[in-house]
Every structure is written in structure tokens, then in C-alpha cells.
Simulated scan of single mutants.
Amino acid sequence: MTATFTPEITDVTAAAERMRPHVRRTPLLHAEIDGRPVVLKLEHLQRTGSFKLRGALNALLAGDRPDEVVTASGGNHGIGVATAAAILGLPATVYVPTQVPEGKARRIEGAGARLVRAGGSYAEAAAAARSAAARPGVRYLEAYNDPVVIAGQGTVAAEIVQDTPEVDSIVVSVGGGGLAAGIALGGAGRLTVAVEPERCACLHHALAAGEPVDAETVSVASSALGATRVGEVPFGVLSSRPVRSLLVAEDDIVAARDRLWEEFRLAVEPAAAVPFAAWLSGRVPGERPCVVLCGANAEWTP
């Protein structure tokens, strides 16, 4: 059963402590690009290739131990859940859309989970997963609309603040809002710059409407950022804290991804390049921003 409380910074602190033996404290890269300083949080070097392991592990460690874990994912969350379940010795089943990238599907199965392709969208896969999880002893693990998952993701920001306290804004890509909400919690009052592709922007539309609304998911980054609606829990966090919403074009996402490779040999997936694209455009506020590179689970060549 999904928790319904509103997460706070104390939940992030508790998450960091319980997850410490299992996750990597990912490094920061201090750089100067086009004459401007920037800090890059290399979260794509996390176990499983993305931040998603943090939220999945926190959720499984914080609650009662289930007999089995079921989830739905566009890819990265599924890899995180599969790995978290394996760490704890639990069987896991991951439902994915039929068009899930093959590299992500392979990694889910490689981590030991059963993979089920269901529906043409994340929403359809999630509906099938929820139906399958409606059995005693089975835990449906939310991808982003869960305060315990959000607290786990917030440990990314907590590490940034501890390692480089002079950072004044944290720039992050947005799918369903779990990571961005965690950044807003763990950032200790720093501005969260939430960046989305122009045609895959559920948070941007929700902030404009004052509530979560449906949005299209057309982007090179949609396999990771393709939630049609921001979660109610992350929206509650993000709408009550300092947040700046920015949109970036498809060509700029690809160019940002390629530049990370050319200049730093950082091989990230398109979703991870989204906040860097916003920073390159000069629209990110703050004198000492930190850009979170959130994932690297793509079959990628420059």
C-alpha cells in the first residue's frame, strides 16, 4: 500500500541513513563551460545507471517486508526496483510498455526481475501492474507518486548540499516529478530548476493549471520522462517550494547530450541531458548551479 503523508527533510535524512550500505555516493564534477562555472552531479554513475535505485530501496527498506514486489516502468525505475528487490532477496515483476527500449528491458531482466510487456504507454502498463499486484503479500511500488520514494530521491540533493554548500540552484529533469520533488526537499531551500522537453512537460502544464493535468509525451527523452500526468504527491511538494519550470527543444537535448560526451566523455541518456540543455541556453538562474545527470541507460553512440 502506498503511503500518503507529505514528505519532509527529516524523511530524506532517514532515507540516506538506511540506504547507505547499498547505494553509491555519486561524485560531483566542477567545470567551466563557455566561461561559466557549473557543477555536474554524476548520478548516472549510480548502481543501475540512474537515481531510481534510491527511491526503490528506501521504499522497500522503510516499510513492512512484502512477499513480492510488482511495479510499472518506462525502464529506469524498473531496473531500480529489480535491483533493490534482488538486494533484499525478494521476487519482482516489472510491467513495461511494449515500446520499452531493449537495453532497458535487458537490464531489468538481468537484475533478476520478471519482465511483462503490457500496453503502448506507461499508464497502460501501470494499470496492468496494479491489477496483478492486487493480491495479499504483494507490494505495488510506485515510480514517483509515493512520499517514501520521493524521500529516497531527495538524497541526491542532500549529497550535493553536503559536498558543495555554495550551490544555489539545482537543475533537474522531470518525468512524473519524483526526483524533482526529492531535490526540492533535500536541497535545503535552494531553488529547484525543473526542466522538461517542450512536448513532454506534465509538470509545466500542472503548474500553469494549478493542478495535475494530462499532457502529451512526444520526445527523444520520453522513455524516461514520459509520464502523462505529474504525481499528486510530487506536485504538492513542488508547488509549495521554490521551483522554476523551464522547457527545452528536442535538438537542444540531443546537442547537450553530445556535448557532454565530446567535452567530458560522459555518456548519458537523453533525459539526463535535458537539464544541461537548459543550462547551456543561459536561462538557469543562480551563480553556482548544479546540474543533475540522472541516468545512462540508453544504447548510446555519439
Rank of each mutant, 00 (worst) to 15 (best):
P21E: 11
P21Q: 13
V23N: 15
V23C: 15
R25H: 15
T26H: 10
P27M: 11
P27I: 11
L29S: 07
H30A: 15
A31M: 09
E32R: 14
E32K: 10
I33T: 09
D34R: 12
P37T: 08
P37D: 07
V38E: 12
V38G: 11
V38W: 10
V39S: 13
L40R: 08
L40I: 08
L40D: 09
L40S: 06
L40E: 09
L42T: 08
L42P: 04
E43I: 01
E43G: 00
L45M: 15
Q46D: 08
Q46T: 05
T48P: 02
G49L: 12
G49H: 10
F51E: 12
F51W: 10
F51L: 09
K52H: 05
L53Y: 12
A56S: 06
L57I: 13
L57P: 07
N58M: 11
N58L: 09
A59C: 14
L60G: 03
L60R: 06
L61Y: 02
A62G: 05
A62T: 15
G63Y: 03
G63H: 04
D64S: 11
R65A: 03
P66H: 04
D67V: 01
E68N: 01
E68R: 10
V70S: 01
A72F: 00
A72C: 02
G74H: 01
H77C: 00
G78N: 02
I79M: 06
G80R: 07
V81T: 13
V81M: 10
A82N: 02
T83P: 02
T83N: 09
A84R: 05
A84Y: 04
A85C: 11
A85T: 10
A86S: 11
I87K: 08
I87P: 03
L88Y: 05
L88A: 05
G89Q: 12
L90P: 09
P91Q: 08
P91E: 08
P91H: 07
T93M: 08
T93H: 05
T93I: 07
V94D: 15
V94Q: 14
Y95I: 01
V96G: 01
V96Q: 02
P97H: 11
T98I: 11
T98P: 04
Q99M: 09
V100K: 03
P101V: 12
P101W: 13
P101K: 14
E102Q: 15
